[in-house]
């Protein structure tokens, strides 16, 4: 058990090292925080719940419309971006990215990390 959580911790801190990533979290599909790497820890729990709802609602909307499971949800604002990706049936991964960096590399990193998270939780 400690091993898995340590590995998730490492995954998050690696992800946070990618340029432009301000915070990230691993969240269960039903909105519980598994682990986060963010400055304002006290907001991590509600952030987790909101992210799971957002991705869940987006997935339901998209599949109901016959458009399949979305690859990710990206929320853009002038102050930054929030990206949520599914990581298997039990978890998702969320990052907050600063507004001034390109997303290409980050999306690649995120997909890679999501795949690892999925395997860790199997």
């Amino acid at each position: 058990m400690t091993d898995t959580i340590d590995l998730i911790d490492k995954l998050l801190s690696d992800l946070k090292k990618s340029g432009g990533v301000e915070a990230c979290a691993a969240v269960s599909r039903d909105g519980l925080l598994i682990k986060s790497s963010m400055q304002k820890e006290q907001f991590a729990e509600s952030f987790a719940a909101m992210s799971a709802t957002m991705l869940g609602a987006a997935e339901t909307a998209s599949t109901e419309l016959g458009k399949g499971v979305p690859n990710r949800v990206i929320v853009e604002s002038t102050q930054g971006r929030l990206i949520a990706v599914g990581a298997g049936p039990s978890a998702l991964l969320v990052v907050i990215v600063s507004p001034d960096v390109g997303l290409g590399l980050i999306l690649l990193e995120l997909d890679k990390s999501a795949k690892i998270l999925k395997e860790l939780l199997e």
């Binding site: 599909r29 039903d30 799971a52």
Partner: peptide
């Protein structure tokens, strides 16, 4: 404790299901 409040209307049932695990 962390507390999760669900919506109530039927049109949100998928979200209610999503949130209530565990």
């Amino acid at each position: 404790a962390d507390i999760f409040g669900t919506p109530g209307q039927e049109r949100f049932d998928p979200i209610i299901k999503l949130l209530s695990g565990e």
